[in-house]
Design a protein around this nucleic acid. Sequence first.
DNA 1: GAGCACTGC
Length: 662
Amino acid sequence: MATLQFWKPGTTGPGSTLDRANETDDSVISSAPTTSLSIQAARERLPIHKYRQNLLWKNDSLGTLILFPTGWASEGNIIACTQPRRVAATSVAGRVASEVGTIIGDEVGYTIRFEDVSDKERTHILYMTDGILFRETLVDPLLSRFSVIMIDEAHERSVYTDLLLGILKKIRRKRPSLRIIVSSATLDAMSFVDYFSSGGLENEVTVASLEGRMYPVEIAHLEQPTPDYVKTAADTVWNINLQQSRGDILVFLTGREEIDRCLEKLAERLPNLPRNASPLKLFALHAGLSIQEQLSVFEPAEPGTRKVIVSTNIAEASVTIDGIKYVVDSGFVKVRTYNPTTSLSSLVTVPISLASAIQRAGRAGRTMSGICYRLYTSSNLKSLSPTTQPEITRTDLTTVILQLKSLGVDDLMKFEWVTSPPAESVLRALEGLVASGMVDEDGRLTVVGEKVAECPVEVNLARMLFASKDYKCGDEILTIAAMTTVQDVFIIPDGSAGALAELERRKFTAEEGDHLTLLNVYNAFVRYGRSSSWCKSHALSFRALSRAISIRSQLKKYMQRFDLPTESCQGDAKRLRQCLVSGYWRNGARWVADGTYRSVRGNTVLHVHPNSVLFTRKPRSGWVIFHEMEETKKTQIRILTEIEPDWLLDYGHKFYPKHGGS
DNA sequence: GAGCACTGC
């Protein structure tokens, strides 16, 4: 077994202890506090914090900032507090309700998609996801029912956080009475200060940067970089178990494959564990697992044993596990990036940001003091970028721009982005919106564009919902739209269980392709009583299918609002496929003899994703449309349906001749 | 012939 050379925790080697003051700008960020921050402390550390007598800041025991309003909400106005994730919105609302001494949904409530636990008359503090608040701006552009808006976890820089900040800056000019509070946990608090200052809003917007309660965490870096961090992670876990006192271990790797490999290495060694060492209980943690599998991670380890949780980034912010004393950080993460030139998105493994490194280390100090082993050197640490690139700079902007236009932001170059997306992404999205009839040649929203902007699915799918009126297949298109929106409907485990799952999947196969196969799965799920055991026996994800049910019913309400019929096509698959083409006509592809496809736009070589029912089969017509295209080792297309090529012409003439077919 | 970080409306 390799001997790993770490700088010993607690010694004074370079980067040997978690010294936040060295890693961050301590004029903005507090050093790791072990007691609750007082108002005074917050004021001292925040350059433009504006303190109001009638507002009390409190840092609760779980480290989340809680606002206790005593004046601002008294005129019947509401304080909104946004969170990037649904679980955070609901759980923080619950804690605040109990601190205030009311039941949830009364004075304190929350609103997330599919769930509104608030009272129109009585709720004064409303927790919501940032996506929900952004959507509300489409209906009420000045957000007039709110007197205070607090954007929490702003450092995560989700697309909706960035959009909200931009909109709030605009609203603030028209509604000077609106109080805005931006709460950010890490290094870039200063960038929010700069952002609002540049519009003359300094001293009017509060930027708060508060750390949660944390125990000290010692940091150890590798002395030499490792060529194989998966193996090094396994070695490190092994050494911790032999050398360090009791306490569970959390390992950060980038994806399922690495996690399985690391766990295999550890499992192989378990028989050689010395008799006096603690037995290890091994767990994987990633989003692809079932709910039960994820929950098993939270069960306390049996006395005398040690839990090892090998996880993706899900454990960095979304999931919190108590009892972790040791963190092993690979220093890498997978991020989605988008290339506007090729319209392709891809997942790439990149070094984490400094903010992530600090966040991961902090996972060792939530319930006791701990140690973080970084599988990179302290000089590697210095080369990390301070924060993760905001999502808005690396995503397809089609929906974003449609929604901004609906808000009256016609000149996208004049919109005050916190961070501007690449101009090419903006142009590519605009081009797509013009081609699909959402935006006219002058850049203004069309009538259908107005309606589609309100629809909570991507533009292609919304177009299909509208077209379903002509093809008389609203019922089926609703289901297909919901099913393509949820991911991971089919559970394909590793090894022999995977082959069995494959067989189960074939039972739902439709000749015409994946869209109709998904329709079959949904209908069977409903027919068999939406049962989770039925899902399990057919290798389907109960979570994904339940979500599809919710999305479908939300979309159905939307269709009814716009007088779109939801009649069934009565098994007429041809009509249904023609309707699909109305949404996907830009995603056409032609089969070629080696089993790959060529895109109609650009003639790119496309490979069918192995999950497709057309993976092994040539479509009879030789032509397909596909739901999405992604760059992996190759360019892959997912969710295919066979079509007749002349169906493309009904739409293509609007686009191809004019733009030279590129 | 082979794969999937994480959210959100």
